[in-house]
């Protein structure tokens, strides 16, 4: 990020631009080129929490946006500086709060902005997966993937793929199970 990057505010009256032109541009470029799976029409739309590192993966997801690459509206992204910041409790919290899946994304090995953060993530991940398995949480619900700043398409594909898998798996029962558990005690 750069502190002295020019902002639109430095330009004269952007807000006064004619809206007609916007409409036209929008109509021309904004139309998604392919159909992403939607949760409409009665089918189950899973809720995925995405934890993305700022430098590669979040930028990759931004690129999917600037390139207008459509994907399922199932994912909600939470930005962290590095994948190494992603505490296993974040994942557990998300599942406990009703997420059907958690997608963790970081820079490709070797490309971490902090040189080795993603190696730490990589080492921590199997431990997390083992713990989830012990808790009886299906494997497909939590996933770790590398997405670079240029891989907007890959991010979109990942979200779509995970969405399909979670749809096949059905809604997560973790939240309700926890609630019942709590009530019984």
């Amino acid at each position: 990020m750069n502190e002295d990057r020019p902002t639109v505010a430095d330009l004269p009256t952007v807000a006064d631009l004619p809206t007609v032109a916007d409409d036209q541009t929008a109509a021309r470029v904004d139309r998604p080129a392919r159909r992403a799976p939607t949760g409409a029409a009665g089918s189950f739309q899973p809720r995925i929490v995405g934890f993305l590192c700022n430098w590669c993966s979040y930028a990759g997801a931004d690129l999917a946006g600037t390139s207008r690459t459509p994907y399922a509206a199932s994912v909600r992204v939470i930005r962290v500086m590095c994948s190494a910041r992603i505490d296993p409790t974040f994942v557990l919290k998300a599942l406990a709060e009703g997420a059907d899946g958690v997608l963790i994304c970081g820079c490709h090995p070797g490309d971490c902005h902090y040189s080795e953060g993603n190696y730490k993530t990589m080492r921590r991940y199997p431990l997390l997966k083992r713990m989830l398995a012990d808790l009886g949480i299906e494997d497909a619900r939590v996933r770790l993937e590398w997405v670079s700043a240029s891989e907007g398409q890959r991010f979109a594909d990942l979200v779509d793929d995970m969405t399909q898998r979670l749809r096949a798996l059905g809604p997560s029962r973790i939240k309700t199970a926890l609630a019942t558990d709590h009530a019984e005690r």
């Binding site: 904004d30 159909r35 992403a36 939607t38 409409a40 997801a61 946006g65 600037t66 459509p70 994907y71």
Partner: peptide, 11 residues
């Protein structure tokens, strides 16, 4: 709500 939403979701 732009890069992660309006630009990537059609519905």
């Amino acid at each position: 709500i732009r890069e992660h939403c309006s630009w990537v979701h059609g519905d």
